[in-house]
Protein backbone atom coordinates (compact mmCIF):
# COMPACT_ATOMS: atom_id res chain seq x y z
CA UNK A 1 0.00 0.00 0.00
CA UNK A 2 0.97 3.61 -0.52
CA UNK A 3 3.14 6.03 1.44
CA UNK A 4 5.94 4.05 3.00
CA UNK A 5 7.67 6.23 5.60
CA UNK A 6 11.43 6.44 5.47
CA UNK A 7 11.90 4.83 8.88
CA UNK A 8 9.14 2.27 8.63
CA UNK A 9 10.29 -1.34 8.53
CA UNK A 10 10.58 -2.96 5.12
CA UNK A 11 8.15 -5.82 4.68
CA UNK A 12 9.31 -8.74 2.60
CA UNK A 13 6.56 -10.88 1.11
CA UNK A 14 8.01 -14.37 0.95
CA UNK A 15 5.98 -17.18 -0.56
CA UNK A 16 6.96 -20.83 -0.36
CA UNK A 17 6.16 -23.72 -2.67
CA UNK A 18 4.76 -25.73 0.27
CA UNK A 19 1.27 -26.18 1.66
CA UNK A 20 0.60 -24.37 4.94
CA UNK A 21 0.79 -27.58 6.98
CA UNK A 22 4.13 -28.81 5.60
CA UNK A 23 7.07 -28.99 7.99
CA UNK A 24 9.00 -26.99 5.41
CA UNK A 25 6.86 -23.99 6.34
CA UNK A 26 8.48 -24.36 9.79
CA UNK A 27 11.90 -24.53 8.11
CA UNK A 28 11.10 -21.35 6.20
CA UNK A 29 9.93 -19.76 9.44
CA UNK A 30 13.30 -20.52 11.05
CA UNK A 31 14.80 -18.43 8.27
CA UNK A 32 12.35 -15.55 8.58
CA UNK A 33 12.72 -15.45 12.38
CA UNK A 34 16.47 -15.11 12.00
CA UNK A 35 16.07 -12.32 9.48
CA UNK A 36 13.64 -10.41 11.68
CA UNK A 37 15.69 -10.75 14.87
CA UNK A 38 19.01 -9.93 13.24
CA UNK A 39 17.58 -6.86 11.52
CA UNK A 40 16.29 -5.54 14.82
CA UNK A 41 12.83 -5.37 13.35
CA UNK A 42 13.84 -3.26 10.35
CA UNK A 43 12.94 -6.11 8.04
CA UNK A 44 9.62 -7.85 8.56
CA UNK A 45 8.78 -11.00 6.67
CA UNK A 46 5.28 -11.92 5.62
CA UNK A 47 5.55 -15.67 5.07
CA UNK A 48 2.88 -17.21 2.83
CA UNK A 49 2.16 -20.80 1.77
CA UNK A 50 1.96 -22.04 -1.82
CA UNK A 51 -0.94 -20.57 -3.74
CA UNK A 52 -1.35 -17.52 -1.49
CA UNK A 53 -0.17 -15.30 -4.34
CA UNK A 54 1.11 -17.59 -7.08
CA UNK A 55 1.06 -21.36 -7.60
CA UNK A 56 3.84 -23.52 -6.17
CA UNK A 57 5.65 -23.93 -9.48
CA UNK A 58 5.26 -20.23 -10.36
CA UNK A 59 7.35 -18.68 -7.58
CA UNK A 60 10.29 -17.91 -9.86
CA UNK A 61 8.01 -16.03 -12.27
CA UNK A 62 6.43 -14.35 -9.25
CA UNK A 63 9.82 -13.15 -7.96
CA UNK A 64 10.92 -12.02 -11.40
CA UNK A 65 7.76 -9.95 -11.80
CA UNK A 66 7.95 -8.70 -8.22
CA UNK A 67 4.49 -10.04 -7.40
CA UNK A 68 6.27 -11.56 -4.41
CA UNK A 69 9.55 -10.24 -3.02
CA UNK A 70 11.04 -13.59 -2.13
CA UNK A 71 10.43 -17.30 -2.40
CA UNK A 72 11.37 -20.46 -0.53
CA UNK A 73 11.47 -23.30 -3.03
CA UNK A 74 13.74 -25.77 -4.85
CA UNK A 75 15.51 -25.32 -8.19
CA UNK A 76 13.90 -28.40 -9.72
CA UNK A 77 10.55 -26.57 -9.84
CA UNK A 78 11.65 -24.31 -12.70
CA UNK A 79 13.52 -26.83 -14.79
CA UNK A 80 10.95 -26.18 -17.53
CA UNK A 81 12.88 -22.96 -18.21
CA UNK A 82 16.21 -24.80 -18.40
CA UNK A 83 17.02 -28.36 -17.43
CA UNK A 84 20.28 -27.09 -15.96
CA UNK A 85 18.23 -25.75 -13.04
CA UNK A 86 17.92 -29.25 -11.75
CA UNK A 87 21.70 -29.68 -11.48
CA UNK A 88 21.53 -27.46 -8.39
CA UNK A 89 20.06 -30.18 -6.21
CA UNK A 90 18.57 -33.01 -8.21
CA UNK A 91 21.32 -33.88 -10.65
CA UNK A 92 23.28 -37.11 -11.11
CA UNK A 93 24.73 -38.70 -7.99
CA UNK A 94 28.46 -39.20 -8.41
CA UNK A 95 28.91 -40.28 -4.82
CA UNK A 96 28.65 -37.01 -2.96
CA UNK A 97 25.94 -36.26 -0.41
CA UNK A 98 23.84 -33.09 -0.24
CA UNK A 99 26.48 -31.59 2.05
CA UNK A 100 29.12 -32.36 -0.58
CA UNK A 101 27.04 -30.67 -3.26
CA UNK A 102 26.10 -27.63 -1.18
CA UNK A 103 29.83 -27.23 -0.47
CA UNK A 104 30.39 -27.35 -4.23
CA UNK A 105 27.93 -24.50 -4.50
CA UNK A 106 29.72 -22.39 -1.87
CA UNK A 107 33.37 -23.41 -2.41
CA UNK A 108 33.61 -25.31 -5.67
CA UNK A 109 32.28 -22.77 -8.17
CA UNK A 110 28.60 -23.73 -8.10
CA UNK A 111 27.50 -20.25 -7.10
CA UNK A 112 29.00 -18.72 -10.26
CA UNK A 113 27.29 -21.36 -12.43
CA UNK A 114 23.98 -20.60 -10.72
CA UNK A 115 24.47 -16.90 -11.36
CA UNK A 116 25.35 -17.55 -14.98
CA UNK A 117 22.21 -19.61 -15.51
CA UNK A 118 19.76 -17.24 -13.86
CA UNK A 119 21.32 -13.95 -14.97
CA UNK A 120 23.18 -14.51 -18.25
CA UNK A 121 21.35 -17.42 -19.83
CA UNK A 122 17.77 -16.83 -18.69
CA UNK A 123 18.02 -13.09 -17.97
CA UNK A 124 15.92 -13.36 -14.83
CA UNK A 125 15.44 -10.41 -12.53
CA UNK A 126 16.18 -12.47 -9.42
CA UNK A 127 18.95 -13.14 -6.93
CA UNK A 128 19.11 -16.67 -5.52
CA UNK A 129 20.91 -18.57 -2.76
CA UNK A 130 20.98 -22.20 -1.69
CA UNK A 131 20.80 -23.69 1.79
CA UNK A 132 19.94 -26.74 3.94
CA UNK A 133 21.55 -29.91 2.56
CA UNK A 134 18.67 -32.40 2.53
CA UNK A 135 18.87 -36.04 3.45
CA UNK A 136 18.80 -38.49 0.55
CA UNK A 137 15.18 -38.81 -0.47
CA UNK A 138 13.02 -41.92 -0.35
CA UNK A 139 12.22 -43.77 -3.56
CA UNK A 140 8.72 -43.17 -2.31
CA UNK A 141 5.25 -44.51 -1.70
CA UNK A 142 3.69 -47.48 -3.48
CA UNK A 143 0.37 -49.28 -3.16
CA UNK A 144 2.06 -52.67 -3.38
CA UNK A 145 5.58 -54.00 -2.86
CA UNK A 146 8.10 -53.24 -5.58
CA UNK A 147 11.18 -55.43 -5.66
CA UNK A 148 12.52 -55.06 -9.17
CA UNK A 149 12.55 -52.49 -11.86
CA UNK A 150 9.90 -54.47 -13.76
CA UNK A 151 7.48 -53.89 -10.88
CA UNK A 152 7.60 -50.14 -11.39
CA UNK A 153 7.52 -50.08 -15.20
CA UNK A 154 4.40 -48.42 -16.59
CA UNK A 155 3.52 -46.76 -13.31
CA UNK A 156 2.48 -43.14 -13.25
CA UNK A 157 4.89 -41.68 -10.70
CA UNK A 158 5.37 -38.25 -9.21
CA UNK A 159 8.78 -36.71 -8.79
CA UNK A 160 10.42 -33.48 -9.99
CA UNK A 161 13.38 -32.16 -11.97
CA UNK A 162 15.92 -34.49 -13.54
CA UNK A 163 14.64 -37.26 -11.28
CA UNK A 164 11.67 -37.22 -13.63
CA UNK A 165 13.88 -37.86 -16.64
CA UNK A 166 15.64 -40.57 -14.65
CA UNK A 167 12.45 -42.42 -13.80
CA UNK A 168 11.22 -42.07 -17.34
CA UNK A 169 14.46 -43.67 -18.42
CA UNK A 170 13.55 -46.56 -16.09
CA UNK A 171 10.22 -47.07 -17.81
CA UNK A 172 7.93 -45.09 -15.53
CA UNK A 173 5.61 -42.36 -16.71
CA UNK A 174 6.26 -39.27 -14.67
CA UNK A 175 4.08 -36.39 -13.57
CA UNK A 176 5.59 -33.45 -11.72
CA UNK A 177 3.27 -31.97 -9.14
CA UNK A 178 3.69 -29.57 -6.22
CA UNK A 179 3.73 -31.25 -2.80
CA UNK A 180 0.26 -30.09 -1.85
CA UNK A 181 -1.31 -31.74 -4.89
CA UNK A 182 0.17 -35.21 -4.50
CA UNK A 183 -2.39 -36.90 -2.28
CA UNK A 184 -5.39 -35.44 -4.13
CA UNK A 185 -3.73 -36.61 -7.34
CA UNK A 186 -3.39 -40.13 -5.90
CA UNK A 187 -7.08 -40.04 -4.98
CA UNK A 188 -7.99 -38.84 -8.44
CA UNK A 189 -5.70 -41.51 -9.99
CA UNK A 190 -3.62 -38.93 -11.78
CA UNK A 191 -0.67 -40.91 -10.38
CA UNK A 192 -0.12 -44.44 -9.05
CA UNK A 193 2.94 -43.84 -6.87
CA UNK A 194 5.03 -40.90 -5.72
CA UNK A 195 7.93 -39.57 -3.76
CA UNK A 196 8.03 -36.17 -2.14
CA UNK A 197 10.91 -35.74 0.23
CA UNK A 198 10.94 -36.93 3.82
CA UNK A 199 8.87 -38.75 6.48
CA UNK A 200 7.58 -35.58 8.15
CA UNK A 201 6.27 -33.89 5.01
CA UNK A 202 4.89 -37.19 3.76
CA UNK A 203 3.12 -37.89 7.06
CA UNK A 204 1.66 -34.39 7.23
CA UNK A 205 0.08 -34.49 3.82
CA UNK A 206 -1.32 -37.92 4.43
CA UNK A 207 0.79 -40.20 2.23
CA UNK A 208 0.01 -43.09 4.60
CA UNK A 209 -3.70 -42.84 3.71
CA UNK A 210 -3.16 -43.56 0.03
CA UNK A 211 -0.24 -46.01 0.04
CA UNK A 212 1.24 -48.41 2.58
CA UNK A 213 4.70 -49.26 1.24
CA UNK A 214 7.44 -46.70 1.84
CA UNK A 215 10.81 -47.23 0.20
CA UNK A 216 13.82 -45.39 1.59
CA UNK A 217 17.19 -44.73 -0.01
CA UNK A 218 17.46 -43.85 -3.67
CA UNK A 219 19.79 -42.20 -6.15
CA UNK A 220 17.14 -40.04 -7.76
CA UNK A 221 17.44 -37.06 -5.42
CA UNK A 222 20.28 -37.70 -3.03
CA UNK A 223 21.65 -34.17 -2.83
CA UNK A 224 18.92 -31.55 -2.91
CA UNK A 225 18.74 -28.26 -1.02
CA UNK A 226 16.38 -25.28 -0.68
CA UNK A 227 16.47 -22.35 -3.02
CA UNK A 228 15.94 -18.86 -1.60
CA UNK A 229 14.85 -16.45 -4.33
CA UNK A 230 14.63 -12.66 -4.19
CA UNK A 231 13.35 -10.13 -6.64
CA UNK A 232 16.52 -8.38 -7.72
CA UNK A 233 15.19 -4.83 -7.42
CA UNK A 234 13.85 -5.60 -3.97
CA UNK A 235 17.19 -7.09 -2.90
CA UNK A 236 19.31 -4.29 -4.33
CA UNK A 237 17.17 -1.59 -2.75
CA UNK A 238 17.86 -3.00 0.73
CA UNK A 239 20.51 -1.30 2.87
CA UNK A 240 23.84 -3.17 2.64
CA UNK A 241 23.54 -4.57 6.16
CA UNK A 242 20.04 -5.85 5.46
CA UNK A 243 21.30 -7.45 2.26
CA UNK A 244 23.95 -9.21 4.33
CA UNK A 245 21.33 -10.37 6.84
CA UNK A 246 19.10 -11.75 4.12
CA UNK A 247 22.08 -13.57 2.61
CA UNK A 248 23.76 -14.94 5.73
CA UNK A 249 20.51 -15.97 7.36
CA UNK A 250 20.36 -18.61 4.64
CA UNK A 251 23.56 -20.10 6.01
CA UNK A 252 22.31 -19.80 9.58
CA UNK A 253 18.97 -21.44 8.82
CA UNK A 254 20.82 -24.28 7.13
CA UNK A 255 22.05 -25.49 10.53
CA UNK A 256 18.79 -25.03 12.39
CA UNK A 257 16.88 -26.71 9.55
CA UNK A 258 19.22 -29.70 9.76
CA UNK A 259 18.62 -30.09 13.48
CA UNK A 260 14.87 -29.78 13.12
CA UNK A 261 14.90 -32.22 10.23
CA UNK A 262 16.88 -34.84 12.16
CA UNK A 263 14.56 -34.54 15.11
CA UNK A 264 11.29 -34.64 13.17
CA UNK A 265 12.08 -36.89 10.21
CA UNK A 266 13.35 -39.67 12.48
CA UNK A 267 10.43 -39.44 14.92
CA UNK A 268 7.89 -39.34 12.10
CA UNK A 269 9.40 -42.36 10.38
CA UNK A 270 8.74 -44.36 13.56
CA UNK A 271 5.26 -42.89 13.82
CA UNK A 272 4.50 -43.96 10.25
CA UNK A 273 5.61 -47.49 11.05
CA UNK A 274 4.06 -47.91 14.49
CA UNK A 275 0.93 -45.77 14.40
CA UNK A 276 -0.05 -45.93 10.76
CA UNK A 277 1.04 -49.45 9.88
CA UNK A 278 3.24 -48.34 7.01
CA UNK A 279 5.72 -50.95 5.77
CA UNK A 280 9.15 -49.35 5.76
CA UNK A 281 11.51 -50.86 3.21
CA UNK A 282 14.97 -50.18 1.87
CA UNK A 283 14.88 -49.86 -1.91
CA UNK A 284 16.16 -53.04 -3.52
CA UNK A 285 19.63 -53.33 -5.02
CA UNK A 286 17.98 -54.18 -8.34
CA UNK A 287 16.24 -50.81 -8.47
CA UNK A 288 19.24 -48.86 -7.16
CA UNK A 289 21.45 -50.44 -9.83
CA UNK A 290 18.87 -49.54 -12.45
CA UNK A 291 18.91 -45.94 -11.22
CA UNK A 292 22.68 -45.63 -11.65
CA UNK A 293 22.42 -47.27 -15.04
CA UNK A 294 19.69 -44.78 -15.96
CA UNK A 295 21.88 -41.86 -14.87
CA UNK A 296 24.61 -43.28 -17.10
CA UNK A 297 22.27 -43.16 -20.06
CA UNK A 298 20.97 -39.74 -19.18
CA UNK A 299 24.27 -37.91 -18.58
CA UNK A 300 25.43 -37.93 -22.25
CA UNK A 301 22.02 -36.53 -23.21
CA UNK A 302 22.38 -33.71 -20.68
CA UNK A 303 25.96 -33.02 -21.73
CA UNK A 304 24.82 -32.11 -25.21
CA UNK A 305 23.98 -28.78 -23.64
CA UNK A 306 27.19 -26.76 -23.34
CA UNK A 307 26.25 -25.19 -20.01
CA UNK A 308 25.21 -28.45 -18.43
CA UNK A 309 28.40 -30.09 -19.65
CA UNK A 310 30.49 -27.47 -17.84
CA UNK A 311 28.45 -27.81 -14.65
CA UNK A 312 28.62 -31.59 -14.66
CA UNK A 313 32.39 -31.52 -15.28
CA UNK A 314 32.81 -29.19 -12.35
CA UNK A 315 30.62 -31.33 -10.10
CA UNK A 316 32.44 -34.52 -11.08
CA UNK A 317 35.83 -33.00 -10.35
CA UNK A 318 34.59 -31.76 -7.00
CA UNK A 319 33.10 -35.06 -5.95
CA UNK A 320 36.11 -37.02 -7.15
CA UNK A 321 38.40 -35.05 -4.86
CA UNK A 322 36.12 -34.24 -1.95
CA UNK A 323 34.29 -37.52 -1.58
CA UNK A 324 37.60 -39.40 -1.78
CA UNK A 325 38.48 -37.52 1.39
CA UNK A 326 35.01 -37.97 2.90
CA UNK A 327 34.98 -41.71 2.37
CA UNK A 328 38.57 -42.18 3.51
CA UNK A 329 37.91 -40.18 6.64
CA UNK A 330 34.55 -41.72 7.55
CA UNK A 331 34.48 -44.66 9.93
CA UNK A 332 31.85 -47.33 9.36
CA UNK A 333 29.01 -45.68 11.27
CA UNK A 334 26.74 -48.65 10.68
CA UNK A 335 29.17 -50.90 12.51
CA UNK A 336 29.08 -48.74 15.64
CA UNK A 337 25.31 -48.43 15.44
CA UNK A 338 24.93 -52.17 15.10
CA UNK A 339 27.21 -52.60 18.10
CA UNK A 340 25.12 -50.43 20.41
CA UNK A 341 21.64 -51.09 18.94
CA UNK A 342 21.94 -54.61 17.65
CA UNK A 343 19.39 -55.90 15.18
CA UNK A 344 17.64 -52.58 14.53
CA UNK A 345 18.73 -52.03 10.95
CA UNK A 346 19.51 -54.61 8.33
CA UNK A 347 21.41 -52.82 5.60
Amino acid sequence: APAVLAQAPVTMKMQTSWPASDIWMDFARQYTERVEVMSGGRLKVDLLPAGAVVAAFQVLDGCHDGVIDAAHSVCAYWYGKHKGASLFGTGPVFGGSATTMLSWYYAGGGQEFYRELTQDILGLNVVGMLGFPMFAQPFGWFKKEVATVDDVKGMKYRTVGLAADLMQQMGMSVAQLPGGEIVPAMERSVIDAFEFNNPSSDLRFGAQDVAKHYYLSSYHQASECFEFLFNRDFYEDLDPDLQAIVRYAVEAASTSNTAMAMDNYSADLIKLKDEHGVNIHRTSKNILDAEIKAWDDLIPELEKDEFMKRVLDSQRQWVERVTYYELMAAPDYALAYEHYFPGKVKL
Binding site: V53, V54, A55, Q58, D61, G62, D65, G66, V67
Partner: peptide, 13 residues
Protein backbone atom coordinates in the same frame (compact mmCIF):
# COMPACT_ATOMS: atom_id res chain seq x y z
CA UNK B 1 2.59 -1.89 -10.86
CA UNK B 2 2.63 -5.47 -9.65
CA UNK B 3 -1.08 -5.87 -10.16
CA UNK B 4 -0.60 -6.37 -13.88
CA UNK B 5 1.83 -9.24 -13.39
CA UNK B 6 -0.36 -10.68 -10.68
CA UNK B 7 -3.31 -10.59 -13.03
CA UNK B 8 -1.40 -12.43 -15.76
CA UNK B 9 -0.05 -14.94 -13.26
CA UNK B 10 -3.57 -15.63 -12.00
CA UNK B 11 -4.90 -15.94 -15.53
CA UNK B 12 -2.23 -18.50 -16.26
CA UNK B 13 -3.10 -20.30 -13.02
Amino acid sequence: NRIFSLFINQTYA
